[in-house]
Design a binder for these strands. Structure first.
Lengths: 132, 132
DNA sequence: TGCGTCTTCAACCTTTTGGTTGACTTGGTT
DNA sequence: AACCAAGTCAACCAAAAGGTTGAAGACGCA
């Protein structure tokens, strides 16, 4: 296995982004904003409207989402329309699916082993029963 | 749309668990432990070994993972084997896929609109070019 | 130019998080 | 009984997160 510094730094970078993405979506308000943005782009004020927090707080939330790569912001006069970037979701999905599948495979293997043991137990019991 | 208190509380409960799961996986050490547990169950000491933190810290991390429903712990003498629970991953996957798909559909629609506009532009340009 | 709107920046506060050390519980071992 | 090993609990600490208010920057419009 190659362990060059580039690879290491790349791994760490991925790790960091994964941390940022998960962390960004750990907040209900930010998840809600993502849901809103899936419908269409929106300005900061529009995004702030449903919540009982200040616009400044929403601006901070958007910065978190942007740093995670979940969202991008363009310029339209004094407006700053926010756009959802769907690609980053793949990063998470890949990570999740990987370990979910491993865990499930292991579960199935364990199931098979248990079934095997159970059938051996019955055989054993039968023999013992015949012996006594 | 039904807005009974049961439904609301259930929605909030789901929301909370989603927050806990995302939050739990936002930490690199905890993600690493999940990766380790996908291979097989492990004790607290085994899990702590690779990291330069105390066992107590790892114990706390495990509590976070457990509260998120990502992990369960049984008793074996003084050991406390940790087991990965794969089902919770579905909760995240569903959430992610939902909004990713919406965003991508929207992107495709936008693409179509832009293509339409582009072809109209070319037609326009051609007409202008012929006129000048 | 001056005004109003949209947005961000800066300073501050409180709560949460991730870590530490030290004491305690629990269950095997000798 | 004495001891050791695995984990957890409790108290504490520093840094980060999420929120607030107040000021400032950027742009359109009268």
């Amino acid at each position: 296995m190659v362990c060059s510094t580039e690879r290491l730094s790349k791994e760490m970078a991925v790790d960091d982004q994964l941390s940022r993405v998960f962390s960004a979506l750990a907040d209900p308000i930010r998840r809600d904003m993502v849901a809103r943005l899936a419908v269409g782009d929106a300005t900061v004020n529009e995004l702030a409207e449903p919540y009982s927090v200040t616009v400044q707080a929403v601006s901070k939330h958007l910065k978190v989402l942007e740093d995670a790569g979940l969202v991008s912001r363009s310029k339209q006069a004094q407006r700053r329309p926010v756009h959802l970037e769907a690609e980053v979701f793949d990063l998470m999905t890949k990570w999740i699916e990987r370990y979910r599948q491993e865990a499930e495979q292991r579960y199935r293997r364990l199931d098979a082993v248990l079934a095997e043991m159970a059938s051996e137990d019955t055989r054993q019991t039968r023999v013992e029963g015949e012996a006594s």
